[in-house]
Structure formats: C-alpha cells, structure tokens
Design a protein around this nucleic acid. Structure first.
Length: 432
DNA sequence: TGAAATGTTGGGGCG
DNA sequence: ACGCCCCAACATTTC
C-alpha cells in the first residue's frame, strides 16, 4: 500500500495549508516531510543564523501538533534531489503534495525534483498557497503584466471581490502516518542557538485597527511584525487577509504590495541582478567601502539612519519607515549601489523575502518599477522630525545621542542631495 | 511611500 | 481710505 507525502517548505503550519488539505483528502496515509536544504544552508554567513533557528522552532511546534495525531515530521538534511532519491528508495510513494514556491532557486529545485518523481511515475501536485493571486491572475486586459502598482491594486481588489477568499477547514478524513521520528537539533545540522526573540504569530486586531495612523512612527508598536511568519508560512496569508479586510484597508494594501513584487520577480527575473529600468545600471556609484561600513554600523551621524541600522543589527528587524530612510541615504546621500544595501538586508533581516526586499531597494534607488523618481531624496533630519519628534526611537537605539561621542554627519545633506540629483540626471541624459 | 524652490494670497503695520 | 511692505500660510512647480 503506497503512502503520500506532504513536503513542507515555506508553509510550516497545519491550518489552512492548501497542499496539506489535498494530501489529507487523498485517502492514503500522509507522511509529513521537511528537508534542511544544504545548498541554501551552506550559503549562510553565520552559524547562528536566526532564520534557521526560527525554522527549527517552527518545526518543533509543528511536530508537537503532529504527535497529538500519533505522527511526527520526517526531517532530512541534504540536497533536495539526493534526499528525494533516498525517499523514493525507502517508501512506496503514491503522490507528493507541495505548495508553489516562486523564487528562481525554488523553481529550479522543484523542476528537478518533479522530473525525478516523474521518472518513477510519482505525480507531484503543487498548489497556490503563499499568495492571494498568482502572476497570471492579475494582468492587464491584453494579458501583459502590470508594472505600476496602483492599476495593479485596482485589478487585484476587483478580483478579490469576485474570488471570495476563504480559509480551508481541517480535513477530518486525515490519515497521518503513525510514526515517531526524531527531530534533529540545531547543532546536528551545524548551527548554534542565537537566543533571538521572535515576534508572535497572532494577528493583533488592535494593531490592524490603528495601522493607518501608527504605522509610520518607529517608536510605536504600530506594524504587524508578521513578515517572518509570512516568510516561513507559520501564518496563512488568507487568514491574515480576512482580518486585514475587516480591520484595515491600508494593511490590505501592504499585502497587495507583497503579491505585486512576487509577480514582478516572476515576470522580470533580471531584477535580481540588475535594475528594472536598464538605464539606471549606468549610474556611476561612488561605492566607498569605508562609507558602507559606517552605514552598516549605524555611525553616519544621522540619528534616524543610525537608529535603524542599529535596530537591524541588534534584532534582525527594522521599522518600515526607517527602511526607506536608510535605503534612500545609502543610495542617494552616499551614492552606493543599491545591491550592496540589498545584500546587507538579506543577511540581517529575519523577515527577508527576496521579492519584497529587491522591490523595496529598487524603489528607493529609483531604478525599479513604479519607483520613486530619482529626484525624490529623503531628508533624514526632516523624516526624524516628522516621525520621531520626541527622539524616543532614536534614544532607544543610540544611547549616546546628543553626547560628544556621537559622530557628526558624515556628509552634508544639501551637498549630497544636489550631488545625487546631478549624478542621476547626468546618467539618464547621457546617450548610451 | 519627498523636499526645496518658487509663486500666490491675504492680513496687519505703517506712513 | 489707500498704497506699500512684510511675512506667514498655503499652493504650485521643480528637482
């Protein structure tokens, strides 16, 4: 008698999980599998990467719930193709169920695994789960993709009205494989505990209710902090959308941005290594390494920039308003290539999401789709006065703020602004 | 999901 | 009552 496998990847939950729902509906015994992908883990800079720790915790939580059903997660460590070769040898696999994963690496991985499974006549069924609408569901009338957010969001909302998004019920015919597998510790897969505190996965209605008024003030707890849970699927996007639709139209907009950037990355994968607008690849960045180090360390002398960079280093998270300010500062004031900043965020952010991070950086640098115009330069001092007028956020992250030890601004704002505008303008006006 | 420069308007002081 | 200046407040344009 064959079994079916639910392959967990970035959907680490039992509730409202589309692939899992279909696996449970299959009728055969369901074996839950997770693979620690060595091809991804090898590339991580630190052996105490908090994201690996988060996954480890999420797997343990998942396993506790499975134990109550007499089952447990089967966790493998290796390259996915090799692991699947082993699984095919060890089990009589009827079908494999998984949710769509849209990043370029994941697409290649799933293509290879799909071919391997097909060569053993094992169907590989995959489903939409981590977005509300996939790339082909929101297009212009002629079928081409949107590259501007506002019309995209209008179409998205009209589709939503037709679609009636619902959460899936738990499948009561479920038939888990009864087993008691061991979960490897962090150390067993080559990592250490870092002791990071992760935000809760609960959707807080009071946060959503006040989101529009409070979201821009970094001293407040005004944002959801759910990015990491969306990244690893410890919360369902449908569950979050239903709450957002009920309590906060502006938060719904943020979820639309998420689908938008996923769609952009799919249609225009060149954005991973170059500007969405090719002309911006000709900008002659200054790329001063010492300046970059000061930005990373939070020692630019601009308090809001420094507070944000220190918050990122200390917690793996930065308030969204401040992300825009530090990104504008790096690209415009220091004229450092946006990809340097993107890479630093990718290394440090717990909620790092390739599509959103890339989209956000290209937006700030002015080179992306529907980007800020190049002459839109944030004034870090004014941003501070508007969004942290009482220096609450700044003092939290810069204890020496106002004292002699705090550095003077590393560049003069008026000079840097004029310089950025002129470098951009000269680049864009120069014939190719 | 800007900021700065420039333009316009209107009230008040004053001769 | 009137013209003139100043300047804040707001609006528009420009980068």
């Amino acid at each position: 008698m064959s079994i079916v496998i639910i392959w967990f990847r970035r959907d680490l939950r039992l509730n409202d999980n589309v692939a899992l729902f279909h696996a449970m509906a299959d009728g055969r015994e369901v074996l839950p599998v997770f693979i620690f992908d060595t091809e991804i883990l090898q590339k991580l800079q630190s052996r105490s990467d908090a994201r690996v720790e988060f996954i480890s915790q999420a797997l343990n939580a998942l396993n506790e719930r499975l134990k109550r059903r007499g089952s447990s997660l089967l966790i493998k460590h290796g390259s996915p193709e090799k692991v699947w070769q082993e699984l095919i040898q060890s089990y009589q696999i009827g079908t494999v169920y998984a949710n769509h994963d849209y990043e370029p690496y994941a697409l290649k991985r799933d293509e290879k695994v799909g071919k391997l499974l097909a060569s053993h006549d094992i169907p590989f069924h995959t489903f939409k789960d981590q977005v509300i609408f996939e790339k082909e569901e929101i297009t212009k009338e002629n079928g081409t993709p949107y590259t501007v957010f506002t019309p995209y969001s209008h179409k998205w909302k009209s589709r939503l009205a037709e679609a009636s998004v619902k959460m899936l019920p738990e499948h009561n015919k479920g038939n888990w494989c009864q087993q008691n597998a061991c979960i490897p510790s962090l150390e067993e897969i080559g990592f250490r505990q870092g002791g990071v505190k992760f935000p809760a996965s609960a959707v807080q209605e009071d946060i959503l209710t006040r989101y529009a008024e409070q979201r821009d003030f970094p001293a407040l707890h005004g944002t959801s902090q759910l990015g990491i849970h969306l990244r690893f699927g410890t919360i369902s996007i449908r569950q979050l959308l239903l709450k957002a639709a009920q309590f906060s139209p502006s938060f719904v907009n943020e979820l639309i941005w998420r689908d938008f950037y996923q769609m952009i990355l799919w249609h225009y994968p060149h954005v991973i290594s170059s500007a969405f607008k090719p002309a911006y690849d000709r900008i002659l960045w200054i790329n001063n390494e010492a300046d970059f180090e000061r930005w990373k360390a939070g020692e630019t002398g601009y308090p809001l920039v420094d507070a944000g960079m220190r918050q990122l280093a200390a917690t793996g998270w930065m308030h969204n308003r401040v992300r825009m300010v530090v990104a504008s500062f790096l690209t415009k004031h220091l004229l450092i290539d946006w990809r340097w900043g993107e890479t630093w965020f990718a290394e440090k952010l717990l909620d790092f999401e390739l599509a959103s991070n890339n989209g956000g950086w290209q937006w700030a640098a002015g080179c992306g789709c529907d980007a800020a115009p190049y002459f839109r330069v944030f004034n870090p001092q004014l941003q501070q006065e508007k969004f942290d007028p009482k220096h609450e956020y700044i003092l939290k992250w810069i204890p020496e703020y106002g004292l002699p030890g705090y550095p003077k601004p590393m560049v003069n704002h008026e000079m840097a602004r004029a310089r950025a505008i002129s470098v951009y303008r000269n680049t864009l006006n120069r014939p190719v």
